[in-house]
Computed example of a mutant assay.
Amino acid sequence: MRTAWLAERRSRSPAAHKTMDKIVTLLAKELRIQPRQAQVTLELLDGGNTVPFIARYRKERTGSLDEEQIRQVEARAQYLRNLEKRRAEILQSVAGQGKLTPGLEQQLQQATKMQELEDLYLPYRPKKQTKARLARQKGLEPLAGCIVLQQDTKETPAALGAAFVDPGKDVPDAAAAWQGALWIVAEDIADEASLRALARKTLWDGARLTAELMTDERAGKDFLLYKEY
């Protein structure tokens, strides 16, 4: 078993070694253990050894980590490996679209949670046809820009919208043009990672979940505990 593990370790690419070093460093910092302890424990786990076996018979190698600490290493390492795998997939996808800017790459590389990665990737994730995408295809993105920029203009909303009327593109009037522009703005806001994080935090900090019984108490007796909860 150890021979197979050594062969696998030697076959790792430089990028894989770099990823492993990154994970070991994070594990040591988060779990407050030495990098060597994190590395050896991972090697033992990857070699097929069980947590009880490592805790009992490999104390001299792990620096006497107990079962709870070893399980923490195991669980956190799995999360970090999944995180790095997803990071690589997202970087490859965005780069393949020709949209990987230095700033975006830095944000993706610095993300420490899966949710952060997914929020950053959302604007670049292949989407099904949406109302906003249809509006973009109709040439309404500049009108959406007017909403976002809030520039002072002498033109009335009706006049601005009229400039985008095109029955051939299913934009029969100014109202339809503005509606399409609003769909674009709504999607752009929903795709903005920082706004999604703010909304999530606001809801988590201040949201209130309530429940009420929707039938008479006899029929809903199994749920009376949650009545007016």
Rank of each mutant, 00 (worst) to 15 (best):
L225I: 08
E30G: 01
T153K: 14
Q150H: 07
A174L: 03
D205T: 13
Y57D: 09
Q137E: 14
R136D: 14
V94H: 01
Q109Y: 04
Q115H: 09
P142D: 10
Q34F: 09
Q179W: 03
L31F: 05
L45M: 08
E192R: 12
L160H: 08
A163M: 14
L224T: 05
V94A: 04
E155N: 15
A197Q: 11
W204A: 11
Q179S: 06
V165M: 07
A197P: 02
M114R: 03
I90V: 07
K99L: 08
Q137K: 11
T215R: 11
E155K: 12
L203R: 10
C146F: 13
F164I: 04
C146K: 10
A181C: 04
A159N: 12
R81G: 08
Y226E: 09
I70M: 10
A176S: 15
N82W: 00
E228T: 13
L117Q: 01
W183V: 03
L117I: 04
R133M: 09
P172E: 11
A95W: 09
D170A: 15
L26R: 14
A144E: 01
E217P: 02
P14H: 06
A190T: 02
M1Q: 13
K59Y: 03
E68A: 15
A38R: 01
E155H: 15
A163P: 07
A181G: 03
Y57P: 04
E187N: 04
L117G: 00
L182S: 07
F223L: 15
L224N: 12
G145P: 02
A175F: 03
P172N: 09
E74K: 14
T25D: 15
G48P: 04
M1V: 11
A77F: 02
A38E: 00
K22V: 00
E141M: 04
L6E: 14
L100M: 13
E74R: 13
